[in-house]
Computed example of a mutant assay.
Amino acid sequence: MVFADRAQAGELLAERLQGARDPVILALPRGGVAVAAPIARRLRAPLDVLVTRKIGYPPSPELGVGAVAEGGEPVFHRELLRRLGMTPESVADVVERERRELARRVSAYRGDRPLPELAGREVIVVDDGLATGGTARAALRAVNAAKPAKVTLAVPVGSPDTVASMRGEADEVVVLATPVDFRAVGQWYEHFEQLDDDDVLDLLDAASAGDDGPDELA
Protein backbone atom coordinates (compact mmCIF):
# COMPACT_ATOMS: atom_id res chain seq x y z
CA MET A 1 0.00 0.00 0.00
CA VAL A 2 1.35 3.41 -1.04
CA PHE A 3 -0.51 6.50 0.17
CA ALA A 4 -1.04 9.53 -2.04
CA ASP A 5 -0.12 11.83 0.84
CA ARG A 6 -0.50 12.22 4.58
CA ALA A 7 -4.06 13.56 4.28
CA GLN A 8 -5.24 10.44 2.44
CA ALA A 9 -3.51 8.26 5.01
CA GLY A 10 -5.32 10.12 7.77
CA GLU A 11 -8.69 9.63 6.07
CA LEU A 12 -8.07 5.89 5.85
CA LEU A 13 -6.97 5.72 9.49
CA ALA A 14 -10.09 7.63 10.54
CA GLU A 15 -12.25 4.83 9.13
CA ARG A 16 -10.48 2.37 11.45
CA LEU A 17 -10.92 4.65 14.49
CA GLN A 18 -14.65 5.24 14.30
CA GLY A 19 -15.25 3.31 17.53
CA ALA A 20 -13.30 5.81 19.64
CA ARG A 21 -15.32 7.45 22.39
CA ASP A 22 -14.82 11.19 22.82
CA PRO A 23 -11.07 10.95 22.15
CA VAL A 24 -8.30 13.52 22.35
CA ILE A 25 -6.05 13.42 19.26
CA LEU A 26 -2.35 14.08 19.91
CA ALA A 27 -0.16 14.36 16.82
CA LEU A 28 3.62 14.04 16.73
CA PRO A 29 4.92 17.04 14.79
CA ARG A 30 5.65 17.71 12.24
CA GLY A 31 4.42 15.05 9.79
CA GLY A 32 1.99 13.45 12.20
CA VAL A 33 -0.11 16.62 12.31
CA ALA A 34 -1.00 16.31 8.63
CA VAL A 35 -2.16 12.71 9.24
CA ALA A 36 -4.05 13.61 12.41
CA ALA A 37 -5.97 16.59 11.00
CA PRO A 38 -8.47 14.53 8.95
CA ILE A 39 -8.80 12.04 11.83
CA ALA A 40 -9.76 14.81 14.23
CA ARG A 41 -12.22 16.20 11.71
CA ARG A 42 -13.88 12.85 11.03
CA LEU A 43 -14.10 11.94 14.73
CA ARG A 44 -15.13 15.48 15.73
CA ALA A 45 -12.32 15.39 18.26
CA PRO A 46 -9.92 18.06 19.54
CA LEU A 47 -6.48 18.05 17.94
CA ASP A 48 -3.26 19.05 19.66
CA VAL A 49 0.42 18.22 19.38
CA LEU A 50 2.67 16.17 21.62
CA VAL A 51 6.18 17.37 20.88
CA THR A 52 8.97 14.80 20.76
CA ARG A 53 12.65 14.94 19.85
CA LYS A 54 15.05 12.24 18.78
CA ILE A 55 18.26 11.85 20.78
CA GLY A 56 20.93 11.27 18.16
CA TYR A 57 24.23 9.44 18.38
CA PRO A 58 26.77 12.31 18.45
CA PRO A 59 29.07 11.08 15.63
CA SER A 60 26.03 10.33 13.45
CA PRO A 61 22.99 12.34 14.65
CA GLU A 62 20.60 10.59 12.27
CA LEU A 63 21.07 7.41 14.30
CA GLY A 64 18.60 7.66 17.17
CA VAL A 65 19.71 6.25 20.50
CA GLY A 66 16.65 7.53 22.31
CA ALA A 67 13.95 10.18 22.38
CA VAL A 68 12.23 12.57 24.74
CA ALA A 69 8.65 13.84 24.78
CA GLU A 70 7.24 16.88 26.52
CA GLY A 71 6.18 15.97 30.02
CA GLY A 72 8.27 12.79 29.99
CA GLU A 73 11.74 11.53 30.75
CA PRO A 74 14.22 10.46 28.04
CA VAL A 75 13.66 6.94 26.74
CA PHE A 76 16.85 5.23 25.55
CA HIS A 77 17.57 2.31 23.24
CA ARG A 78 19.81 0.74 25.85
CA GLU A 79 20.92 -2.21 23.76
CA LEU A 80 22.03 0.12 20.98
CA LEU A 81 23.86 2.34 23.49
CA ARG A 82 25.60 -0.74 24.84
CA ARG A 83 26.70 -1.82 21.36
CA LEU A 84 28.06 1.67 20.75
CA GLY A 85 29.97 1.61 24.02
CA MET A 86 27.90 4.45 25.45
CA THR A 87 25.61 5.19 28.39
CA PRO A 88 22.75 7.68 28.87
CA GLU A 89 25.26 9.94 30.59
CA SER A 90 27.36 9.96 27.41
CA VAL A 91 24.62 11.81 25.55
CA ALA A 92 23.63 14.20 28.35
CA ASP A 93 24.64 17.20 26.23
CA VAL A 94 22.50 15.96 23.34
CA VAL A 95 19.53 15.46 25.67
CA GLU A 96 19.86 19.00 26.99
CA ARG A 97 20.06 20.42 23.47
CA GLU A 98 16.98 18.47 22.37
CA ARG A 99 15.08 19.58 25.48
CA ARG A 100 15.75 23.20 24.48
CA GLU A 101 14.48 22.58 20.95
CA LEU A 102 11.49 20.71 22.36
CA ALA A 103 10.64 23.69 24.57
CA ARG A 104 10.97 26.03 21.58
CA ARG A 105 8.56 23.96 19.54
CA VAL A 106 6.06 23.66 22.38
CA SER A 107 6.10 27.45 22.68
CA ALA A 108 5.76 27.87 18.91
CA TYR A 109 2.87 25.44 18.56
CA ARG A 110 0.97 25.98 21.79
CA GLY A 111 2.25 29.17 23.42
CA ASP A 112 1.37 29.24 27.10
CA ARG A 113 -1.51 26.79 26.68
CA PRO A 114 -0.91 23.47 28.47
CA LEU A 115 -1.55 20.03 27.04
CA PRO A 116 -5.21 18.97 27.19
CA GLU A 117 -6.26 17.12 30.33
CA LEU A 118 -5.65 13.44 29.58
CA ALA A 119 -6.57 11.73 32.84
CA GLY A 120 -9.53 9.42 32.32
CA ARG A 121 -9.76 10.28 28.60
CA GLU A 122 -9.29 8.15 25.51
CA VAL A 123 -6.16 9.39 23.75
CA ILE A 124 -5.14 8.67 20.16
CA VAL A 125 -1.47 9.33 19.39
CA VAL A 126 -0.83 9.83 15.65
CA ASP A 127 2.35 9.85 13.57
CA ASP A 128 2.99 9.51 9.82
CA GLY A 129 4.90 6.25 10.22
CA LEU A 130 7.04 4.05 12.44
CA ALA A 131 10.66 3.33 11.60
CA THR A 132 12.63 2.71 14.80
CA GLY A 133 9.72 3.89 16.96
CA GLY A 134 11.88 5.90 19.35
CA THR A 135 9.83 9.08 19.37
CA ALA A 136 6.52 7.17 19.44
CA ARG A 137 7.70 5.15 22.44
CA ALA A 138 8.69 8.31 24.32
CA ALA A 139 5.35 9.89 23.46
CA LEU A 140 3.32 6.90 24.62
CA ARG A 141 5.15 6.71 27.93
CA ALA A 142 4.56 10.41 28.54
CA VAL A 143 0.85 9.98 27.76
CA ASN A 144 0.51 6.88 29.94
CA ALA A 145 2.01 8.80 32.87
CA ALA A 146 -1.05 11.09 32.71
CA LYS A 147 -3.38 8.14 33.53
CA PRO A 148 -5.67 8.15 30.47
CA ALA A 149 -8.51 5.65 30.20
CA LYS A 150 -7.14 4.24 26.95
CA VAL A 151 -4.19 4.95 24.66
CA THR A 152 -4.24 4.13 20.96
CA LEU A 153 -1.29 4.55 18.62
CA ALA A 154 -2.44 5.19 15.05
CA VAL A 155 -0.02 5.21 12.11
CA PRO A 156 -0.47 4.57 8.40
CA VAL A 157 2.65 2.42 7.96
CA GLY A 158 5.43 0.92 10.01
CA SER A 159 8.22 -1.60 10.25
CA PRO A 160 6.70 -4.94 11.30
CA ASP A 161 9.13 -5.39 14.19
CA THR A 162 8.60 -1.85 15.46
CA VAL A 163 4.83 -2.15 15.26
CA ALA A 164 4.99 -5.40 17.23
CA SER A 165 7.10 -3.75 19.91
CA MET A 166 4.60 -0.89 20.26
CA ARG A 167 1.85 -3.28 21.31
CA GLY A 168 3.44 -3.32 24.75
CA GLU A 169 3.35 0.49 24.96
CA ALA A 170 -0.28 1.22 23.97
CA ASP A 171 -3.65 -0.37 24.68
CA GLU A 172 -4.26 -0.58 20.94
CA VAL A 173 -2.11 -0.11 17.84
CA VAL A 174 -3.92 0.74 14.60
CA VAL A 175 -1.71 0.48 11.52
CA LEU A 176 -2.76 0.18 7.90
CA ALA A 177 0.36 -1.45 6.46
CA THR A 178 3.39 -3.32 7.82
CA PRO A 179 5.41 -4.09 4.66
CA VAL A 180 8.18 -6.64 5.04
CA ASP A 181 10.43 -4.55 2.79
CA PHE A 182 10.03 -1.43 4.93
CA ARG A 183 13.12 0.80 4.79
CA ALA A 184 11.85 4.33 5.45
CA VAL A 185 8.50 6.01 6.08
CA GLY A 186 8.72 8.24 3.01
CA GLN A 187 8.91 5.34 0.55
CA TRP A 188 5.24 4.57 1.28
CA TYR A 189 3.94 8.00 0.20
CA GLU A 190 3.74 9.40 -3.32
CA HIS A 191 4.05 12.89 -1.84
CA PHE A 192 6.06 13.24 1.37
CA GLU A 193 7.03 16.91 1.62
CA GLN A 194 8.78 18.16 4.74
CA LEU A 195 6.64 20.46 6.87
CA ASP A 196 7.81 23.48 8.83
CA ASP A 197 6.47 25.19 11.95
CA ASP A 198 4.14 27.44 9.94
CA ASP A 199 2.61 24.38 8.26
CA VAL A 200 1.92 22.82 11.65
CA LEU A 201 0.30 26.02 12.90
CA ASP A 202 -1.87 26.26 9.77
CA LEU A 203 -3.10 22.69 10.29
CA LEU A 204 -3.82 23.28 13.98
CA ASP A 205 -5.63 26.54 13.26
CA ALA A 206 -7.73 24.87 10.57
CA ALA A 207 -8.62 22.01 12.92
CA SER A 208 -9.60 24.48 15.63
CA ALA A 209 -11.82 26.32 13.15
CA GLY A 210 -13.35 23.10 11.86
CA ASP A 211 -11.85 23.50 8.39
CA ASP A 212 -10.21 20.87 6.22
CA GLY A 213 -6.89 22.68 6.20
CA PRO A 214 -4.74 23.53 3.16
CA ASP A 215 -4.28 20.62 0.77
CA GLU A 216 -0.66 21.44 0.06
CA LEU A 217 0.30 20.59 3.64
CA ALA A 218 -0.66 16.96 3.23
Rank of each mutant, 00 (worst) to 15 (best):
V2S: 04
F3I: 05
D5I: 14
R6E: 02
R6T: 04
A9Y: 14
G10M: 14
L17M: 08
G19Q: 11
L26K: 04
A27E: 09
A27S: 05
L28P: 06
L28R: 03
R30G: 05
G32D: 06
R42P: 02
R44W: 00
A45K: 00
V51Q: 01
R53K: 14
G56E: 04
V65N: 02
A69M: 08
E73R: 15
L80F: 00
M86W: 05
A92N: 03
V94G: 04
R100N: 03
R104T: 12
R105K: 11
Y109L: 15
Y109E: 02
L115P: 05
L115V: 12
P116I: 12
P116Y: 07
A119Q: 09
I124K: 04
V125F: 01
T132D: 07
A138I: 15
K147Q: 13
K150E: 13
K150R: 13
K150S: 09
L153D: 05
A154C: 09
V155P: 10
T162Y: 02
T162P: 06
T162N: 06
V163C: 06
A164V: 15
S165Q: 15
R167Y: 08
G168S: 13
V173E: 01
V180Q: 07
R183P: 00
V185T: 10
V185M: 07
W188L: 12
E190N: 03
H191D: 09
F192S: 10
E193Q: 11
E193W: 09
D196N: 13
D198V: 09
L201H: 03
L201G: 06
L204R: 07
A207D: 01
S208P: 03
